[in-house]
């Protein structure tokens, strides 16, 4: 399986994602510069975290018009796997590949800490390898991760299993105190209706080795591998 990590000007988690795939998982990976017009040859596209285009105007608003995004949108439309992490999640929302929006954390703080994620849907390519009921300990690092969707959209998403991760306590309870940024319904990650595009604020690529304090992020990439192998 071959991963592609998109690099926008201002991306800064591209190296972490590359390292996890190549050195920890031992899979193939290449960077894809944002000026590229094709993502042919890749099986999963990762939009990494960072501050693409300096977060000018709105996070992700300018990156989504990069030449590479046209092919990412058609890749996703054809069922290709796309994972947007943090700023990558913001880019996916701006590109219209995922519903809703992310804006300023309710506490106005840049939050950088480990969170516990309750997995709400095990039937996505990104979660299919997870044990039911297992929490994921994965860090966040963002100032604009406050998820919003209008009530009708949220209802539709809940119904079709598009809420994938929620911020929870270490015991797995979804409470206000476990919510680091004010996200609606504690939402930390969502997918599209087809389930092949996932956006999440927490950084699985920063939690792939014991030395980093958690290996849970690796489980998401392992799920991707499992579902990709299953689809062949």
């Amino acid at each position: 399986m071959k991963f592609g990590v998109v690099v926008f000007p201002g991306s800064n988690c591209d190296l972490d994602a590359y390292h996890l795939v190549k050195d920890v998982l031992g899979e193939q990976v290449d960077y894809i510069w944002h000026q590229e017009e094709s993502v042919a040859g890749f099986d999963c596209i990762v939009l990494p975290g960072g501050f693409s285009y300096g977060d000018y105007l709105r996070c992700g608003a300018i990156a989504r018009f990069s030449p590479v995004m046209k092919s990412v949108v058609s890749f996703a439309g054809g069922g290709g796997l796309v994972l947007g992490i943090c700023n990558g999640f913001q880019v996916l929302l701006e590109a219209g590949l995922l519903p809703g929006a992310l804006y300023r954390n309710i506490n106005l703080q840049f939050r950088c800490l480990f969170t516990h994620l309750k997995v709400e849907n095990l039937q996505t390519p990104f979660t299919v390898g997870l044990e039911a009921g297992r929490l994921l300990k994965i860090p966040i690092a963002h100032g604009e991760g406050n998820y919003y969707a209008d009530p009708d959209t949220l209802r539709r998403m809940e119904k079709s299993g598009q809420i994938v991760f929620r911020y929870a306590t270490a015991n797995g309870e979804v409470t206000d105190t476990a919510n680091p940024n004010g996200s609606l319904a504690n939402i930390a990650g969502v997918c599209n209706e087809m389930k092949n595009v996932l956006g999440m604020m927490p950084h699985p690529e920063r939690a792939g080795e014991a030395a980093l304090g958690s290996e849970d992020g690796r489980l998401i990439f392992k799920s991707i591998l499992k579902s990709w192998e299953g689809s062949r």
């Binding site: 105007l57 709105r58 608003a61 300018i62 018009f65 929302l93 701006e94 809703g100 929006a101 804006y103 919003y148 969707a149 209008d150």
Partner: peptide
């Protein structure tokens, strides 16, 4: 298209 995000 660009200057605003109609969702919010």
């Amino acid at each position: 298209r660009l200057l605003t995000n109609p969702v919010i």
